[in-house]
């Protein structure tokens, strides 16, 4: 039971990291990245290929993060000087291309994927390993959370949110908006890459069907429910994914619905939620709250 719980929490950590990455892009900067899952896949496959070819695990993970971020850069430069729509369609196309390439390239395993990827803390005994792994992953998540907060609490983060609300106004106040957007895209994608590297080294194999495009929409819905605060995005995503996963067990209790129908029903729920949330509650349950500011100067008392 305890190892099972540890594994659930560890997956929670990975999803939380994905949520933080996408939230930086959508929640704070207003970017629509329809290919988010592709950066997750790039991180996982890079880490897997590197370690399978003898690169030390830690080095491989760092390189995986850099690759995911670097790949996002040209996509951002290509589209973000244009209107926001173009980022959405280019990332959508990019994700399709990545999916096809992974499926059809022999040296990345094709449809079978890659197996035998070295485990995090592989040398440790099997009875303590899950807990050490969990501890390490939670520490990484905590670090990411601290760094993300540092960025979004700074004047830098304030510019990102200004761009989200009106890029035109931000430009007319002297902000070079394109550069900010590119940085948000790169950072968020690098975070997806990090989540991917951890994922690959935790479950030990990667294959194209683990990176279904619908995962992007699942996380997207999660962070929109949660709201743009980091905790809101992470918790919203975890609760939403947990709820969606829980439906898998409904079949076991005797409801006369097949597993594949459940998959479709989940898609239906995600779709309906996206529409309703856009219309009713775009800021989510826990929107980002900026600091309350109180005037503290001498003349305020007078």
């Amino acid at each position: 039971m305890a190892p099972y719980l540890a594994s659930l929490l560890l997956f929670g950590g990975i999803y939380a990291m994905l949520a933080l990455g996408l939230n930086l892009q959508w929640g704070h900067t207003g970017l629509v990245n329809l290919g988010f899952v592709a950066f997750f896949a790039l991180g996982a496959y890079s880490a897997a290929l590197l370690t399978l070819n003898g690169v030390p695990l830690l080095v491989a993970a760092v390189i995986a993060v850099v690759i995911a971020g670097l790949v996002a850069y040209p996509l951002g430069r290509l589209t973000l000087r244009l209107q926001d729509d173009y980022l959405a369609i280019v990332t959508f196309g990019f994700a399709e291309v990545v999916r096809i390439l992974l499926l059809n390239t022999r040296w990345v395993g094709g449809a079978d994927g890659l197996t035998g990827i070295p485990q995090l803390f592989g040398p440790l005994a099997a009875d303590v390993r899950p807990f050490i792994q969990l501890g390490a992953v939670l520490m990484v998540v905590a670090l990411v959370l601290v760094l993300a907060r540092r960025l979004t609490e700074s004047p830098y983060g304030r510019v990102l949110r200004a761009i989200r609300d009106s890029a035109e106004a931000a430009r007319s106040l002297g902000k070079e908006t394109e550069g900010y957007k590119v940085v948000a895209l790169v950072l968020g994608s690098a975070l997806a890459g990090l989540a991917g590297a951890i994922y690959a080294h935790y479950i030990g194999y990667v294959s194209p069907d683990q990176f279904d495009p619908s995962l992007t929409f699942l996380i997207f819905t999660g962070i929109v429910i949660g709201g743009s605060s980091h905790w809101g995005a992470a918790v919203g995503t975890l609760v939403f994914i947990a709820a969606m996963e829980a439906t898998r067990f409904l079949g076991d209790v005797g409801l006369p619905i097949s597993q594949s129908d459940f998959a479709q029903l989940r898609l239906l729920v995600i779709g309906l939620l996206l529409i309703v949330l856009m219309q009713r509650k775009r800021e989510g349950l826990w929107p980002y709250r900026h600091r309350e500011r109180v005037r503290v100067t001498r003349d305020a008392a007078a």
Partner: peptide, 23 residues
Amino acid sequence: SPRVTLLVASIGVALVIRAIVSL
């Protein structure tokens, strides 16, 4: 609303149609 919310809503519509067709 900002145009980008329409874009997101259209993803929702896409998923709803696909789910119904599959069901």
